[in-house]
Amino acid sequence: MRDFWKNALRDLGKIGVAYIIITVGTWLVFMILIPQLIMFDYSLRPMLALRDIGGPKDVWTLKNYIVFFTNKLHMAIFFKTIWSSFIVTLVALAICYPIAFYLAKVVRGAKVGLLMLGLIIPYWINELLRLFAWQLILADSGILNQLLILLGIIVDPINFRAGNGAVILGMTYAYILFMVFPIYNVMESLDRNQLDAARDLGASWLRIHRRIVMPHAKPGIAVGCTMTFMLAAGTVAAPQLLGSPSSFWFTQVINTNFECANWNQGAAYATVLMLLCMIFMFIMLKIFKVGLKELTQ
């Protein structure tokens, strides 16, 4: 540890070290630690009228968490959110893995840039607007229904937004980049000769992917999956805009709590969701046998 500081001082100078400590420290303390602690504190206190705050009723309690575990509906929504986020992650992975492989190992030269641009362009538009676009496509009198009616495939418009389908579709679309880029990055570093060598030894494409490409892309897949899962579990926009009452998301429950001024309950729910995301991340790392260190590569 002393060597670490010594080296840092030598390489960066006093001002450099001070700058890094101040910036990183500010970020850690003010943007991560304090907000989380405040949230955590809120979650452990009962909702009180303004005059009772700081009074004898203002004590630490697990009541808010107990509410969650006893409210069957909220529990159901919670698990449905996990399950749906999981599906979003799987669908995104299924779509993005081939895209990433194609970009990293099949096309070459200027085409890569063009395709990348194609992937990024939709992200120049705000996420809300992109979701509104999906709303226009999927609405009862939307483009998709009109097209299907025009082609004579259906007579009456289909309600695409019933159930979770539309939300999962919108989210998958919204988070594709977060899945493509980490996988693309690791695949890029895979030596093409290894694919040729495996092919030359008689391997089918399926086996090449199972034995060579996937093991190599593991860290990228793990990062992509964790990011997509967390974004899906944590977003409120997509279910709000594309969902129906039957596809209520856990974030919407949290949101409602805050809107109804029950910040304490909302904070407890948010903490539960955060814990879940952390658990998911560690499970992913375990499954893919990726260390935290590799994640940052």
Partner: peptide, 17 residues
Amino acid sequence: GSNNRPTAMIFQNLALF
């Protein structure tokens, strides 16, 4: 295809897994 020919190749960078 290369997977069905009676050949095996040793690559310049070896391409070991």
